[in-house]
């Protein structure tokens, strides 16, 4: 009876106690690293904010229109504020990872391993989204200006259509990079894009037969209402 009590109750408790004692130094180290991380993040955030102020980053961002883009996205921070927050966040994140690894818990280590393997995908996806945003803005604007200069009444819609299409394409690529619904997203994009083009073709073909004929006649036969003004 006595032996049985020792085996079932005392020994597991002793084992647990031993494990806790073994784990405590790791936990304390981990907490210390985390605290150091909080401190370092705050210091780097402040120092980088000061550095950005010295090099007049906000003025430069204003000049090159980056501040305008942030405002458009609804971000109230200045560029220097945002960048210093990102730097602080990255340092905090690095220390958090180190502190978690210090715990030496197999489950956490496995999770961190998976996370590290996946992180490059997230990084590339974010890059694709950024590039997609800027490219969509650029191409949308190019299409808008070109169609205004061609005198097309639907210039605004053309610009928006080009912008949204390019951005949607970049979102599709980013999701594919993250491995989320690979085929579904691609098929959805193809169906929507193809559908829009088909709808436009049918609409123009059926609804605008006369307009299309007039336009082609004028273009091909040179019957446009041209001014005699020589610009150069």
């Amino acid at each position: 009876m006595r032996n049985s009590f020792k085996e079932t109750i005392i020994e597991p408790l002793q084992e647990f106690y031993k494990n806790v004692l073994d784990f405590l130094p790791d936990l304390l180290t981990s907490i210390l690293i985390l605290a150091l991380g909080v401190l370092m993040a705050a210091v780097f955030k402040k120092a980088s904010a000061r550095l950005f102020r010295i090099i007049n980053l906000d003025k430069l961002s204003e000049k090159y229109g980056i501040s305008g883009i942030l405002k458009k996205w609804g971000l109230k921070d200045s560029v220097s504020g945002l960048l210093s927050k990102i730097i602080g966040g990255l340092i905090m994140f690095a220390f958090l990872i180190i502190s978690l690894r210090t715990l030496n818990v197999p489950t956490i280590e496995g999770f961190l391993g998976d996370l590290f393997l996946y992180l490059p995908n997230v990084f590339v996806a974010v890059l694709i989204l950024f590039a997609g945003y800027f490219l969509s803005d650029f191409l949308g604007r190019t299409a808008l200006i070109a169609s205004v200069n061609a005198g097309l009444k639907i210039s605004g819609s053309i610009g928006k259509f080009v912008k949204l299409t390019v951005f949607f394409l970049s979102v599709t690529m980013a999701l594919e990079q993250l491995g989320i619904g690979k085929e579904t997203v691609l098929i959805a994009f193809a169906v929507i894009f193809g559908g829009v083009v088909l709808a436009l073709a049918i609409a123009f073909g059926l609804g605008g037969q006369d307009a299309a004929r007039d336009y082609i006649d004028k273009r091909l036969k040179g019957e446009e209402d041209k001014d005699d003004i020589q610009h150069l």
Partner: peptide, 10 residues
């Protein structure tokens, strides 16, 4: 006028 309507943002 088309320009003023569409390009004022730019």
């Amino acid at each position: 006028r088309l320009g003023t309507k569409e390009l004022s943002g730019i």
